[in-house]
Design a protein around this nucleic acid. Structure first.
Length: 434
RNA sequence: GGAAGGGUGGCUGAGUGGUUGAAGGCACCUGACUCGAAAUCAGGCGUAGGAGCAAUCCUACCGGGGGUUCGAAUCCCCCCCCUUCCGCCA
């Protein structure tokens, strides 16, 4: 959530920055300002009345103590009307505040000044790349062919169980998935200084608001119903990423400055309705409704937010380097930036069977945008409460990593060589049809 | 799910309708004393919103929400959480 004070004091700056996103949100600034002014006017009015009521009530108390009962009764009768007016105005203030916040909660974050201007994803610059596209002496297969031949994933039965976009990993496929999760968690927790956590896979709507999925993207979430109790429907949501529960761990808290930075890594399945994406890359494992991911979350001092973002990208890149997978890092331009992010790098891994780069990580600094929504603060050395920067990065998403891995390491005989770092986890150096 | 007890400031712990944003203690900060420290003494010490150039002032907050009242931490209703016991259960 943007700071209402910033909008009040520098509306032109906010409008100009939002304009670079191309979403038309800058047009809502006037609405926010007028709702905010309405709220403040009502607030001033009701607070003056409350001050009056408090004063009179004390006077009544004093009269009662002096046994001037008749006089007190007269005052009480006079004051009754003030109370009624206060109730009305309180409701009006709450309504104005709610209207203001409804608009405010749907405004995206302001892009950082270092983010390149652009009109679409086509304008995202490539920052660097690592390795090179592997060459094959044969036509490389797609992961779909390979999964079927090696029986790594049973697409048909996954669909039978739940529907399209849900995967049934089988045998060595299931083992590989589990090996990858463990490899990733071990790497980040032992080599990169992240504390491993294992969060709930369902959260309350407050958490979804905190990390920015709600209210705007509520159509992308799966809501849960408890047993036959229909009143519970919509109270809990399946998480679209571990970022949601993990970034909210300290919501409503005031941390100490010395507690920062806080670094968490977590595995979770991710549930995404992908509403409106039907028909787009629906075949195979590239775009599914449930996938595994290891997420990195950092809560840092704002002074170091952007240095820490660079480091976090490095942590995600280390995954692909260790696995020997060719990738490139791109920076999202203003038009492609996610709702909560001020600056984002995406990491795209090369998948030879797809002849395409697949996004396996997105690393963002959301600055204080999420901290403000979840009321997460830290007490500075100076003694005042401030909002920390919250960073999130995939380290990395699994279904696509799985794809890149088997497509990259496929052999002419149809088997897959397992890269060195995974062998201890998989207890095998090769995936082959049995 | 049932029963009982309980949720007050960083901690502890008073407070059952009227200068209580909240006694006392601990912790913390500043000053005095001291070569320095400890002890002691004096003062300070919550969060948020609003008005104001500022000093400062006002409003709200005692788990959350609603109600009664001129006035609620205190009374009433609903909900949440914690502890213990019982039931159920991987």
């Amino acid at each position: 959530m943007l700071d209402i004070k910033l909008i009040r004091e520098r509306p032109d700056f906010v409008r100009e920055r939002l304009l670079t996103r191309g979403g038309g949100d800058e047009r809502k600034i006037d609405e926010v300002l007028s709702l905010d002014e309405k709220r403040r006017n009502l607030l001033g009015e009701v607070e003056a009345l409350k001050a009056l009521r408090n004063k009179v009530s004390k006077e009544i108390g004093a009269m009662m103590a002096q046994k001037k009962l008749a006089e007190a009764e007269v005052k009480k009768t006079e004051t009754r009307a003030i109370g009624e007016r206060i109730v009305e105005l309180d409701r009006a203030v709450a309504a104005a505040e709610q209207s203001r916040d409804e608009v405010l909660l749907r405004l995206p974050n302001i892009p950082h000044s270092s983010v390149p201007l652009g009109q679409s994803a086509a304008d995202n610059p490539v920052v660097r790349s690592w390795g090179s596209q592997p060459q094959f002496g044969f036509r490389p297969k797609t992961h779909v062919e390979m999964c079927e031949q090696l029986k790594l994933v049973d697409f048909a039965r996954g669909t039978k169980l739940t529907g399209s976009g849900f995967l049934l990993y089988t045998n060595l496929g299931a083992r590989l998935e589990r090996a990858l999760i463990q490899f990733l968690l071990d790497l980040h927790s032992t080599s990169h200084g992240y504390v491993e956590v294992s969060p709930p896979f369902m959260v309350k709507s407050e958490c979804m608001v905190g990390t920015g999925q709600f209210p705007k993207a509520i159509d992308q979430a799966y809501a849960v119903q408890e047993g036959e109790d229909k009143t519970t429907l919509g109270k809990l949501y399946l998480i679209p990423t571990a970022e949601t529960p993990v970034a909210n761990i300290h919501r409503e808290e005031i941390l100490k400055e010395a507690d920062l930075p806080i670094n968490y890594c977590a595995y979770s399945p991710c549930f995404r309705a992908e509403a409106g994406a039907a028909g787009v890359g629906t075949r195979g494992m590239i775009r599914v409704h449930q996938f595994d991911k290891v997420e990195l979350i950092r809560v840092v001092n704002p002074a170091h937010g952007y240095d820490e973002l660079e480091k976090m990208v490095g942590h995600a890149e280390a995954v692909l380097q260790k696995l020997g997978l060719h990738y490139r890092v791109i920076q999202l331009c203003t038009a492609d930036l996610g709702f909560t992010s001020a600056k984002t790098y995406d990491i795209e891994v090369w998948a030879p069977g797809q002849k395409a780069y697949l996004e396996v990580s997105s690393c963002s600094n959301c600055e204080d945008f999420q901290a403000r929504r979840m009321n997460l603060r830290y007490k500075s050395e100076a003694g005042d409460n401030r909002y920390p920067h919250i960073l999130n990065g995939s380290g990395t998403a699994l279904a696509r990593l799985f794809v890149a891995l088997i497509e990259t390491y496929q052999q002419s005989d149809g088997s897959v060589i397992v890269p060195e770092p995974l062998r201890p986890y998989l207890k095998s150096d090769r995936l082959a049809a049995s």
